[in-house]
Design a protein around this nucleic acid. Structure first.
Length: 575
DNA sequence: GCCGTTTTCGGCCCGACTGTTTTCAGTCG
């Protein structure tokens, strides 16, 4: 059983406990355990086998017992009892904005409503308003909520919302009376997808900022509006939230609204231990609530006895413990990258000429750029055969003769459905960089996929496995390939794994990249750019790496050119 | 259900907004 399957089940138990009207702290305990296990860097089965499950924060005797049952038998009697007790439709109702466990339960107990469809019908028939605490407005909101649920895109890729967020942030920052405007929430933490875009503004007078925000041309509908807080639905279907605070409240507010929720809960717990109260307005010494001065987030962390924690780490995935122990990682920064090792040109399905890519790389301060066009089997992408590949080398040599950014001869060679590579070894041996990837047969069984990838990893000429899971955000799930096995073999063979920066890939994910780095696997942050401007996608790959606790020492394309080439050569010579 | 330089029992993060209410419950983040 996969870790994420255990996590889902614990979350389902939490939902069901809430719907059953159980002690809410019990449900929270299951959620906390789920969060801890999500961040675990080992298979849960191993912990069960060695009896160390209870060392995981939030996992006590009862939950450990249930996980053990689940992992060893594949079933959980407790869950089955809960499922039998709570109709499945109640859980589905929780997805409707404005419907929580109490309302779902009320609808079921009083009106026997056990599905979204039945709820919609009852709301239309105006039967919900008969219930105590429910009026016409709630009924209307539920109908709109159901509508929105059907229309809304799930979470939106970071690469889509971040440019929008930055533009609006800049506009807010330019308003008269605004001292500061920043992104917060999951966009600031650089999660791969963003549910809603959060803005925080420091201003003495909130009214003009609220007025501007609720009348943005890109806004479709104002969902909520108070004196200092508003929510607007963006035309793209995602929600945008604004908070306006007084300038002296900015630091605690930014900390608070950046989250994650789980990180905040831990910080508040630490504050309590130290005799403080922490909220979005500041840190206060109890019992008289005397404010503790803090001009920055770093001041607040310091008051709690911690060093500054980078936003990308704030997920309660061990960063609090690491901070307390003085063991926070030094995270990679974009300027540390000396080149991009996976770029397409006009030679296959890219749009840019080699000379323009070279100029663009120079403009970004790079030392090298690997041209990795597709190999011939990818006909749809005008993949290169040996002859055209050699012709491309001539152009590369001519450009390199002029000095400046060094173009590396590379290829993105297809791992064919039968496991062979799409180019002969003797050709691969002549290249500076070989990136291998699976583009077809992504729906194969895990074992079949594994045999294909295993062959590529064991090939002495393959330097990098690109976009290992094959996922496309919002379009295609990760393949069944067992990435734990890939990581183990990549470590053994000295093959690097790619963090692909393309906004709908971000593959490896933050968590998998972290596991790979911890297993001693070298990582490469690439864009997979098919156009000049896409070289800037590198920002999202760097963000993913940072969320994976990764520093420059784990990443091959931080190496100077000669060291990089020596490192790539080393694998080929291991045989 | 978890957890403990106050604690093995009694707590468990905290506030804004909304809607239905005459003082608060539910939801959300």
């Amino acid at each position: 059983m996969k870790n994420y399957e255990v996590v889902w089940i614990l979350e389902e138990i939490a939902d069901l406990l809430e719907l059953a009207g159980e002690n809410p702290f019990k449900a929270r305990a299951y959620r906390r355990a789920a969060r801890s296990l999500e961040a675990l860097d080992r298979p849960i089965g191993e912990l069960v086998a060695e009896g160390s499950l209870r060392e995981v924060p939030g996992v006590g005797e009862a939950i450990a017992g249930k996980i053990a049952e689940l992992v060893t038998t594949g079933r959980l009697a407790y869950l089955e009892r809960l499922r039998a007790q709570v109709p499945p439709g109640l859980k589905e109702m929780l997805a409707i904005p404005g419907v929580g466990p109490r309302l779902a339960r009320l609808f079921y107990e009083e009106l026997k409503i056990d599905s979204i469809a039945a709820l919609e019908e009852a709301a239309r028939a105006q039967r919900l308003r008969e219930l105590r605490g429910v009026g016409a407005k709630v009924e209307l909101n539920i109908l709109q909520g159901i509508q929105r649920l059907r229309e809304r895109p799930a979470r939106v890729p970071l690469g889509v919302v971040l440019p929008i967020g930055e533009e609006i942030r800049a506009a807010l920052a330019g308003l008269p009376g605004v001292r500061r405007a920043e992104l917060a929430g999951s966009a600031r933490r650089r999660r791969d997808t963003v549910g809603d875009l959060d803005f925080l503004v420091a201003a003495e007078d909130a009214a003009p900022v609220m007025a501007f925000f609720t009348r943005l041309p890109v806004g479709d509908e104002v969902l909520a509006q108070g004196e200092k807080k508003a929510s607007v639905l963006h035309r793209g279907g995602f929600q945008m939230d604004l908070r306006v605070v007084r300038p002296e409240e900015f630091a605690p507010a930014w900390l608070y609204f950046t989250g994650s929720k789980e990180h905040n809960i831990r910080l508040r717990g630490l504050a309590q231990e130290k005799g403080y109260k922490l909220n979005e307005y500041g840190l206060f010494a109890l019992p008289e609530e005397k404010p503790v001065p803090a001009e920055s987030e770093a001041d607040l962390y310091r008051a709690l006895g911690l060093p500054f924690i980078e936003p990308e780490l704030r997920e309660d995935r061990g960063e609090i413990e690491a901070a307390r122990a003085g063991a926070l990682p030094v995270l990679i920064e974009r300027r540390e990258l000396r080149g991009d090792l996976h770029v397409h040109s006009r030679w296959s399905d890219g749009t840019a000429a080699l000379k323009d890519l070279k100029a663009a790389a120079a403009a970004r301060g790079y030392e090298y750029l690997a041209i990795c066009d597709h190999s011939k089997s990818l006909g749809i992408a005008r993949g290169l055969d040996v002859q055209r590949l050699r012709a491309q080398w001539e152009e590369i040599d001519a450009l390199n003769a002029r000095g400046g950014v060094r173009l590396l001869k590379g290829v993105e060679v297809d791992i064919l459905a039968d496991g062979r590579l799409d180019l002969p070894d003797e050709v691969l041996a002549e290249l500076d960089v070989v990136v291998a990837s699976v583009h077809t047969g992504l729906k194969q069984e895990a074992e079949q996929l594994w045999r294909r990838v295993e062959g590529a990893l064991r090939n002495p000429h393959v330097d990098i496995l690109a976009h290992p899971s094959g996922r496309l955000l919002g379009q295609r799930e990760a393949s069944a390939l067992d990435l734990e096995r890939v990581i183990a073999l990549a470590a053994e063979t000295g093959t690097a794994l790619e963090i692909n920066s393309f906004p709908d890939r971000l593959d490896l994910t933050d968590l998998m990249a972290r596991r790979a780095a911890e297993a001693g696997v070298a990582l490469v942050i690439n864009t997979d750019a098919h156009a000049v401007d896409q070289l800037d996608y590198i920002e999202y790959g760097v963000a993913t790496a940072r969320r994976g606790w990764i520093g420059a020492r784990h990443v091959l394309n931080t190496l100077p050119l000669t060291e990089l080439l020596a490192r790539l050569e080393r694998k080929a010579q291991r045989r």
